[in-house]
Design a protein around this nucleic acid. Structure first.
Lengths: 206, 206
DNA sequence: TAGATTGTTAATCGATTAACAATC
DNA sequence: TAGATTGTTAATCGATTAACAATC
């Protein structure tokens, strides 16, 4: 018998809660409340309490939540109490930026290997990484048991790359290419596409 | 009397429809249907028809939608039948990647000016752009009548930059910094944050 | 204690889907 | 014509909010 599953829209908010709690902790705070969190994030206090109630009881009447305790719980829930190794495929300007991004650390992720197909790039270095031959993609991902991939190749190559990483065992893809990837249901995909976000906003402009 | 307003969740899907239609057109297709579009995007045909019905009647019974006609309509609705000038603030690795991004063209956007505070960077070139002094931000944005900004500075500086661009007249901000920006309700904000997306996915992994 | 805030229930609100007449 | 597909309605489904007893 399955535990009733948590709505994805709730899951999607948890990383936002975690981000805000991390910031509060950095600012030296020890406690917070659903009201305070809600104001900072821009959603209702009731929604935060409801969301958290799917996973347990983490607060205290009268005093709210211990920030460090709630961070710990959310990290457990989101499975970022460990470090996920990631593969980065495609070293254009964007891949280059991501390879040099310092923000993965302490949030549950690290880049483990970087691939490109360009012979000029293969073998050269980005920070601590040597760019590997895209033809070895599947082999390396399998050997290193990598479950998360970031795809920063062109729209034209993205589906092909996705097929390869899925075959090699990747279970989550962060896709920067402006295409809807087709993957098995067991594989998670999230898209990052500035055009989509910009067009969403210009609807409200005139 | 206001026209009943379209739910934001509907608006958010329109750029995705447009993206898919553009791809279909590139592939040489002339017509499509809600069923076909739905399958490609991964949502129901009924939802696509319902979404579009908020804005008019764009299809024909029996034959579906003319791709070029529907593209035109969606571009009108999203206000990307013109080109929006954008300011880019912050020239780290990510800002550099965005400055060199070719994908804005033909989708309604172009970068008009780029700013940074680092004296080493000010005056140097990225493609056709000269990096300008961040201290001139407000002045230039106002003079050029820029309404869209992309913020690629650190988390610590992001709110400060947001305050400046809003004061200068910006109405839409694409925020790459991992902070919840506080802006007037009349200003649109969309966040792009890979950590948030990755943590959303690892919830489903084990 | 009095005040604050939780977790949860029930009510409200909104979004999605199924179904179908209209019609190309 | 027969088949396909629209736009729309009503029904269903799901998410958010308001309210409150419990209690720190």
């Amino acid at each position: 018998m399955d535990k009733k599953q948590v709505p994805d829209i709730v899951v999607a908010r948890l990383p936002l809660y975690l981000q805000t709690l991390n910031r509060l902790e950095q600012e030296g705070e020890y406690n917070t409340s659903s009201k305070d969190l809600g104001k900072r994030i821009g959603i209702s206090a009731a929604q935060i309490r409801k969301d958290l109630s799917h996973f347990g009881e983490f607060g205290k009447q009268g005093t709210g939540y211990s920030i460090s305790f709630l961070i710990e719980k959310l990290e457990d829930i989101l499975h970022v109490n460990k470090v996920w190794d990631m593969a980065l495929i495609g070293v254009g300007f964007l891949g280059h930026a991501i390879a040099n991004f310092r923000g993965f650390q302490n949030h549950g992720f690290q880049i483990k290997c970087i691939f490109d197909n360009d012979p000029e790039k293969i073998g050269s270095k980005i920070g601590d990484f040597t760019i590997e031959d895209g033809r070895n993609l599947a082999e390396v991902i399998q050997k290193e048991n990598i479950q998360v991939a970031m795809i920063t190749v062109d729209a034209e190559q993205a589906q092909n790359v996705a097929n390869q990483v899925v075959k090699a065992g990747v279970k989550a893809i962060l896709n920067y290419a402006p295409v809807k990837l087709i993957v098995p249901k067991s594989v998670q995909v999230q898209d990052i596409d500035p055009i989509i976000e910009l067009q969403h906003m210009t609807y409200y402009l005139d």
